[in-house]
Amino acid sequence: MQFLLPILHSSVTIMTPLLLAAMGGLFTELSGMLNIALEGLLLMGAFCGIIFTYFTGSMVLGVLLGILCTMLLSAILAAVTLNLRSNVFITGLATNLFASGLTVVLSFKLFGNKGVVVFDSIPSLPVLRIPALAQIPVFGDIFIGHSAFIYLSWLLLAVCYVVLYKTPFGFRLRAAGLHQKALSSLGMDPNRYRFIAFLISGFTCGLGGALLTLNLGAFVPNITAGKGWIALVVIFLGNKKPLGLLIAAVVFGFADAFSNYAQGALNVPADFILAIPYVFTLLAMLGFSIYSKSKDSFES
C-alpha cells in the first residue's frame, strides 16, 4: 500500500483547482446559468497567473492580476449572455475558444513560442508546514506540505457555504435560479445576481488556474485539459452543495492522480491516459442519470 500515499498526496494537489472551479461554477449554476466556460476561465487564470508572476516577480501580485484578468473575461461572458441575451452555452463555448486562442497568440507574441513555456526565475509556491499536524500518521502524510493556496481554497469553500446559505445575497442568488419571477416581482433584477455569480466564477477559476501553472513552473498550451468540464460534473455529482463538491472533487482528484501514476508505472499509451478524465466523467454522468431516473419515475 506504500505506493498509495504519494498518489493521495498528489490527489490533494490535483483536486484543488477542480474544487475552486466547481465552487465558482456552483454560484452560476444556482443562479440558473449553465456555465461551461469554467474550462476557458481556468485556462485564462493559468496563463495570466504565471505570466504576471513572471513579469512582476511577485507571486501574490501575479496571482491577483491573473484573477483580475480572468474576472474581466467572465464579465465579458456575463455581459454578452445577460445584456445581449445570448445562449449561455454558446457564449461559454466562445469563452473557451477565446481563452485557448488568446493564450497561444499571446504566448507566441511574448515568447515567440506556441508550445511549452518554462519560467525558471519565478518563485515556487510557498509551502505551509504545520508541525503539530505533520505528526499524525497517514493524515499528516496526505494533507501536510501543500502550498498555502491549497489551504486557502479550503477556507474559501467555507466562505462559499456561508455566502450561499447564510446571507440575503445567497438567498436571492438561489431564488434567481429557482424562480426568477419571485425576485423580479419584488423589484430585484435576477440578472444582477447572475452577473455577480459569473464574476465569482471568474475569481475562483483565476485562482484555480494560477495554481495549475505555478505548481508546474511552466505554461503548457491547453494545460486545463478538460478540468473545467470535470468541474461541471463535480457540481452535478456533488448535488450542488458545497460539501458534496468537496467529496466529488476528492474522488476526481484521486482518479486523476491515479492515472498519472499509471502512466508512469504501467506501460499504457499516453492517449489512453489523456482520455481517462472524459471517460470517467462520462461514466459518472451516466451513473448519476441512471440513478436519478430510477428515483424519479412511475412504478409499472
Binding site: F171, K181, A182, G187
Partner: peptide
Amino acid sequence: HFMLVDDFTVAQNVVMGVEPTLYGGLY
C-alpha cells in the same frame, strides 16, 4: 401565478429583498 420559491420557507419568501440581518451582513 404565484411568485414563490418552493424550496424556501414561508418566512424566507415573505422577507426576500428586505431581509433582517445580523452582524452587518448575515441573514
